[in-house]
Amino acid sequence: MTTDMPSGPVGPAYGLQLCVDSARPHELADWWAEALRWEVEPQDEEFIRRMVTEGQASNAKTTTHRGRLVWASGTAINPPGQADGAGDQPRIVFQAVPESKSVKNRVHWDLREPGADDQRRTGELQRLIDLGATQVGSGRQGPWSWTVLQDPEGNEFCL
């Protein structure tokens, strides 16, 4: 079978944005920002107010989180110093959904700390548990080992 697919990249590489369904997106974004040492992307309160005033959105589409007016539908986090959510930088969006998580994730995150030794990994594991992660398993393949955890809403990730 032959294909007419071009060989090699065509055009610029995509930026990556992951979207996470959540019952409480602002709280989960806060948790992941702390866990990853990232930053919650700021939302423009004046823009939100203007959208409501102009009839482009209703007050029901907004909420207050940590004393600030935000979109109720969700928020995003970015690596440090990249809080503008630039399209070529990684970004994680937490979006509100009505249903709860019911099965194992088909995709999960591996947190990889450069140069982490066993002592540092143990300290990091404890930090994540102290933040509210739940340890649910572990694995090993050759010289590599990992710990399986869940975030406060039950999403799996590995350290």
Rank of each mutant, 00 (worst) to 15 (best):
L149H: 03
T2F: 11
G123M: 08
D118Q: 08
D88P: 02
L125D: 08
P98N: 14
V70A: 01
L18P: 07
L69F: 10
R112Y: 02
D117L: 04
A60W: 06
L18W: 09
A96L: 15
H108M: 02
E45I: 04
Q150K: 13
H65V: 05
M51H: 09
E39W: 06
A57W: 07
T75I: 14
W71A: 12
S58T: 15
D44N: 15
G132K: 04
D117M: 00
E39G: 06
E39K: 09
A133T: 11
E27T: 14
A76K: 02
P90T: 11
D130V: 12
G154F: 06
A13C: 04
Q150V: 01
E46V: 11
Q95D: 15
M51S: 13
V148S: 05
W38I: 05
K101Y: 09
V148C: 04
E153A: 04
R140W: 03
D117Y: 05
T147D: 02
P25K: 02
W109D: 03
A83H: 09
G132C: 13
D21V: 02
P79T: 00
V20D: 00
A35K: 00
P9W: 07
P114K: 11
R37F: 05
N59S: 13
N78L: 07
F94A: 12
I129P: 01
Q126W: 01
A133W: 07
E156D: 10
M51D: 07
P25H: 02
W32N: 09
E46W: 07
R49D: 01
Q43F: 12
P79G: 00
H108I: 03
L36E: 08
Q17T: 15
D21L: 00
R49F: 01
E54K: 12
L18T: 11
E113R: 10
I92C: 07
N155Y: 12
Y14L: 13
I92V: 14
P90E: 11
A13Q: 10
T64G: 06
C158M: 03
S138P: 01
Q135I: 04
T62K: 04
